[in-house]
Amino acid sequence: MLATKTRKPRIRDAEATQKRILAAAKQEFAKKGLGGARVDDIAERAKANKRMIYHYFGSKEDLFQRVLEDAYVDIRTAEQKLELDHLDPKDALERLVRFTWKYYLDNPEFLTMVNSENLHKARHLKKSKVVQDISRRLVTMVDTILERGVKQGLFREGIDPVQLNITIAAIGYYYLTNRFTGAIIYELDLMSRQALDTRLQFNIDTIMRLVCK
C-alpha cells in the first residue's frame, strides 16, 4: 500500500518537471534557435537538473524535436476546435484565415521555431510521424470546405487545398516574420493596431478572391 501511495506523487512530480523543461525549452529555442540554445540555460530556466533533461528527452536535438512537435500539435488541435464544418463555406474559410492570423500574433514563438527548423532543412520534422499525421487533418479540413463551396456554387472548381493552405499561412507568416525590415522599407509601423487590422482584412479579401466565383 505504501508503494502505491508514493507512486502517484512521484509520477505527478515527473510530469510537472517535464512540463517545466518543455516550457523552458520552448522559450530558449524560440529565442536562440537550436544552435544557440544551451541545455544549461534550459535547465536553469526550468529549475531542473540538467541530468533530468537528458533522462527524459535524450539529447538537445530530441528535446527540440519534441518542442517542435508540441508546437505543431497545438496549432493543428486549435484548428480542429474551430468546427468549421458547421459553417457556411465562406464563413468557414474566413474564420480559418482570421484564426491563422491571430494564432501567429499570439504565438510568435511558433514562427521562430518554424524558421529555425527550416534552417536545419526540416531534419527533425522528417523523423516525426506525429506532425505528418496531424498535418493531414488541416488539408482534409480545407478540402472539405472547398468541396462544400463548389457544391453550393460559391467557389471555383479545381482549387488545390494544399496550395490554398500554403497561401493562407504565407500571407500572415511573411508579414510578421519580416515586420522589422518591412517597417523600414515601407516606412510604416506594421505592428500598429490599424496596420494589423488592415492587413487582416487584406488577407481575407485575397483568399476570398482566389476561391470565389
Rank of each mutant, 00 (worst) to 15 (best):
F64N: 06
D85T: 00
G58V: 04
I21T: 03
N203V: 01
K32G: 07
I75M: 04
L22H: 09
L154V: 15
V67R: 12
Q194S: 15
R209N: 15
D189H: 06
S59T: 09
A122W: 14
L68A: 01
V150R: 12
L105K: 12
H124R: 08
L93T: 00
N49K: 13
F99V: 01
E61P: 08
T140E: 11
I168M: 03
R193N: 15
Y103D: 02
R10T: 12
R156N: 11
A24T: 06
N49G: 10
T100Y: 03
A46D: 01
M141W: 00
I204D: 09
R137M: 07
I207S: 06
K8W: 10
T167V: 12
D74E: 12
T17C: 13
M1V: 08
F110Q: 04
N203C: 14
D41C: 04
D41V: 08
Y173A: 06
I171P: 04
A24F: 10
I171F: 04
K32I: 06
Y56Q: 13
I185F: 11
D70Q: 10
M141Q: 06
L82Q: 02
L196V: 12
S128Y: 10
C212M: 15
R66L: 05
N203M: 12
E187F: 00
Q194L: 13
A183P: 10
L111P: 11
L164R: 05
F29G: 06
L2T: 13
E147K: 08
N115R: 10
Y186A: 11
L22Y: 09
R148T: 01
F155E: 03
Y72F: 15
E187G: 00
F57R: 04
N107H: 15
I168T: 04
K102F: 09
I42P: 11
L82R: 00
K26A: 14
D41T: 12
A170V: 03
F64V: 08
G153Q: 12
I11W: 10
T77K: 14
V142D: 02
V73H: 09
R38Q: 15
A14H: 07
F110S: 05
V150Y: 09
I185M: 11
A25M: 12
G33N: 03
E83T: 00
D88H: 01
G35Y: 05
